[in-house]
Every structure is written in structure tokens, then in C-alpha cells.
Computed example of a mutant assay.
Amino acid sequence: MAYEVKGVVARSKGAPVTVETVIVPDPGPGEAVVDIQACGVCHTDLHYREGGINDEYPFLLGHEAAGTVAAVGAGVTNVAVGDFVILNWRAVCGQCRACAKGELQYCFATHNAAQKMTLADGTELSPALGIGAFTEKTLVHSGQCTKVDPAVPATAAGLLGCGVMAGVGAAINTGAVKRGESVAVFGCGGVGDAAIAGAKLAGATTIIAVDIDDRKLEWARQFGATHTVNSKQTDAVDAIKGATGGFGVDVAIDAVGHPAVFEQAFYARDLAGRVVLVGVPTPDMTITLPLIEVFGRGGAIKSSWYGDCLPSRDFPMLVDLYLQGRFPLDDFVSETIGIDDVESAFEKMHSGDVLRSVVVFK
């Protein structure tokens, strides 16, 4: 029997989202239906609404979510009804060339549910990142469910499903920050602050936050930044070198995804340092760098996909650290809202008033 629920839908490019009736089918083989308890409002959802991902409207938005498994289909063994789970968009296949090399975090053939959720008139919905969680229930592939300790609040846990994991993973997994190293993070929104928190967790001793908003720089200090640079007022590269004995940082993380910011990150690192791009650029963006500088500085230039995370490994670890009081997940939650407030949350996101608005379901 299908489920009839309410969900947030983007029908066309740039149009305000609407709350509509969504039909969620019973789970088929390998699928699960999840009762959503909380879902963060991420920039990626806004990109979907604006047509920045693709044009497969209408979209069922929402993907940073946690909830309880309500039903499972045939053959599902990794989760059971009643399990508290965080949803992810990297359900590894176990068979592609990345998985065959043991690099499951780069799986090139991740799974989504085979069935489609629809509007009441039968129109098929495209779920954001294969999840679609601004809704009371959603249908996903069971591999998109990661069981974690239910002691963590859903409002905090769900953020691991995208933004927080992307930032933490950019520091720990992609950037491989080590104890005693120096790190600069460009852009202090949710992802950037998560990268700062991840660098602190990894033992970095100098963590430099760069942004053009003093309010965001103050937030960055709360997550572990030891230095702050307002790049609207000060040359960021000079300031970073000044804070690191003139050398630059071991790891520079671009959490903005803009050519000018990436160039700053490139020049702000020490010799043999690592540059990590985790901010998402638009398709039209290009960058030009002197090849001799790429060669002469050594080190590595890396892109971070989803923080190069493996949900089955990283989600439970970060939840455990949260429960130990060592990782401040709650601090990323600026406000909790209802399902009718997503459009206003997008407006607050534009103005930089929040790190994360989180939709809470009764």
C-alpha cells in the first residue's frame, strides 16, 4: 500500500517551492521507506530549485536527513524496521572499478531507489541527490541508510548526510590533516566551519578562517579557528603567510568553489602543501595557473567528493564523537523550522543569517 504524505516540491526554475501531496510506494527489492524526523536546508537544494544541477523538474527537495526505517523491501539486510538512520547519497555498489580497488569512497555507480515517488496526479518526482527528504516519508535504496546510535538528536545527525560530512571529510579524508599541521579554510558557511571542526579534530594547531563577513568569522572561532582573516579588508595570502612564519599552510581548503578563492588557496599553501576544493563551482567557471607554479610548489591539488567519505565508516564515528562531547554537531543548527518554511529558509541562506535551518517533522 502506497503512502500519501506532504513534501516540498520545486516545479520550475526559480519558482518558489510548494508543499504538495507526495505518493511514496511500498519499498521494492533493496529499498526502504524512512520516516523523516529532521532534514537540513542545504545550498544544494537551492541549486536544484534554480536549475543549477539539472532540469529534471519537478524535484522533491531535501537530502540532509535522519529518521526511522518504516518498511524494507525484499533482500534488505543492512537495516531493519525501527532502526535510526542517517540518509546518504553514496550507496556503494561494491562492483565498479573504484570498489574493485577497495576505494569504496569513490564508488562510481552508487544506488538510488528503483521506483519513483510521484505527485498525486502521477507525475514522477526527481528526488534531490536521490533522497528527497523534505517530506514525512521518503523512499531510498537501503544502501542509502546508515544505522547510527539513536541517542543523537535527528536535527544534528541529519547534517552528516551532506554539508557537515563534506567539510569534515575535506579536512580529515581528502586533506589528510595531521597533528601539528596548519590549515586555512576559505569560506565559513556550514561546509567551511565543518572543515575547521574537522581540522581541530585531527589535531591541527594553526587553523585560519577566511571570509568576507565578520559574523561568519566569529562563528568560525567557535568551531576551532585560531586566526581569522577578513579577505575584503586584508590580502588573505599575505595574512596566512604572516601567521605561518612566512611559509603558508600545510593544507588550504576552498569551501567556496570560486576561481578567485581557489587561486588564493593555491598560493596560501607551503611547499609540498595540499589544496582541497570542496566548494562546488558552476559549470562556466575556469581557472588559469602558471604551470611552473603547479610544478614548483609540489604537494597536491585535490577535489573532495562528499568529503571522500564512506558513510558506513564515517557517520557512526562522528556520531560517537558527538556523544562523547568531542564534535559540536548541535552548533551547526541555527534554527528549527516547519515544512512550510523552506522558502524563507532559502532567503535566510542568501543573506548569510544561518549556518543551517533544519526542518523538523512531528
Rank of each mutant, 00 (worst) to 15 (best):
G62H: 03
P281S: 03
A128I: 04
R49W: 01
P27I: 00
G167R: 05
Q264R: 04
F332D: 12
F84N: 07
G224W: 08
D45Q: 08
D270L: 01
G169V: 11
L310C: 12
A195Q: 12
V275D: 00
Y48F: 15
N230E: 05
G198F: 12
G167I: 03
F346S: 07
G62A: 03
V276A: 05
G82T: 00
N112I: 15
G180D: 03
A209E: 12
I212G: 14
S344Q: 08
T21H: 01
V360W: 03
G73R: 02
T135I: 14
Y306K: 01
A220Q: 14
W219I: 08
V278K: 05
Q264D: 04
E31F: 06
G296K: 06
Q324G: 09
V256Y: 13
A209M: 10
K178D: 07
G143K: 11
I287S: 09
P25D: 00
V9S: 08
T21F: 03
E31N: 07
F346G: 09
C99A: 09
K137C: 04
E343P: 15
P58M: 04
D211H: 14
C93H: 07
A157K: 11
G7Q: 10
V333F: 12
A239L: 11
V92F: 08
H111Y: 13
E56H: 11
G325N: 09
K101M: 11
D214A: 09
I212F: 15
V17P: 06
H258C: 09
A345N: 04
W305T: 11
Q95L: 12
E347R: 06
C42P: 01
V210M: 09
A98H: 15
V276T: 05
I208P: 10
A114C: 12
D55M: 15
T138H: 05
L61K: 00
S304G: 06
F295T: 08
Y48Q: 13
A15W: 01
C145I: 10
V17C: 05
A255G: 08
G163T: 13
A100G: 15
V278S: 07
S312E: 15
W305D: 07
D308H: 13
E335R: 15
S303T: 13
D341G: 03
L160V: 08
G94C: 06
V5Q: 02
P283L: 05
G30R: 05
S312L: 14
K116T: 01
G40Y: 10
S312I: 13
K13C: 02
Y3F: 14
D308R: 10
T110W: 13
K137G: 06
I53L: 01
A154K: 03
A109L: 14
G52L: 14
D308S: 14
T21P: 04
I337F: 00
Y322K: 11
L271F: 11
T206D: 13
L129N: 06
H350A: 10
T244P: 14
A157P: 14
D341L: 03
H227T: 02
N54D: 15
L271P: 08
G143Y: 08
S12I: 10
G296L: 02
A272V: 03
T205M: 06
F327E: 11
K6G: 01
M1F: 09
G246P: 11
Q264A: 06
